[in-house]
């Protein structure tokens, strides 16, 4: 388990986005951009995921789903907010049902702006997230050795 960052699994969730960023996240996994060259596999199961790629501005109803997905992911984990809505709320900020940004609900490690975020930017964000993941893993291991358990 020492080299978690060599083959992290990614989970994607659409928290009230317009779909634009979601199809770009999916496009990242296809031959032209091929995020799998970093050892990343797109999984649908939060219990096996290390990276959460999340899009959209979070509305009242999906808030609890986002929290649940985040809690279900094992430690250490990183969150990448994809698209300007996920960062700040974007054009949807004034909507009555939008909380505005993923970081209003769960902690975010990397912000990828853009409307829609381009695949290159998403890959860049994920690679940055891998460094953070590696850092978190070191701290996590250290704490585990000290017998402190979680984080």
């Amino acid at each position: 388990m020492k080299k978690l960052a060599k083959s992290p699994w990614m989970l994607h969730y659409d928290a009230s986005s317009c779909n634009g960023c979601d199809i770009e996240v999916l496009a990242c996994t296809t031959p032209k951009y091929d995020i799998e060259r970093f050892g990343i596999i797109n999984t649908g199961d939060p219990f096996q995921a290390d990276i959460l790629l999340i899009t959209g501005g979070v509305n009242a109803q999906c808030e609890s789903v986002v929290k649940q997905l985040y809690e279900q992911m094992p430690n250490p984990k990183v969150v990448v907010a994809v698209g300007i809505c996920a960062c700040t709320g974007g054009v949807f900020k004034d909507c009555y049902n939008i909380k505005g940004g993923i970081d209003t609900v769960i902690p975010v490690d990397v912000y990828v702006p853009g409307c829609a975020a381009r695949p290159q930017a998403i890959i860049d964000g994920v690679v940055k997230a891998l460094e953070i993941l590696e850092e978190k893993r070191k701290n996590y291991d250290k704490n585990a050795d000290d017998g402190k358990g979680e984080n």
């Binding site: 659409d14 928290a15 009230s16 986005s17 317009c18 779909n19 634009g20 960023c21 979601d22 199809i23 959209g56 501005g57 509305n59 109803q61 999906c62 789903v65 054009v91 949807f92 004034d94 909507c95 009555y96 049902n97 939008i98 409307c115 829609a116």
Partner: peptide, 30 residues
Amino acid sequence: IGFVHRGLEKLVETKDFKEYVYIAERVCGI
């Protein structure tokens, strides 16, 4: 349903009608 409900139709009341074209395009990315 309702996981993606943002309330975009309401935004016309506060955005200029020319500006709203950009919101209309962001109803859906596909």
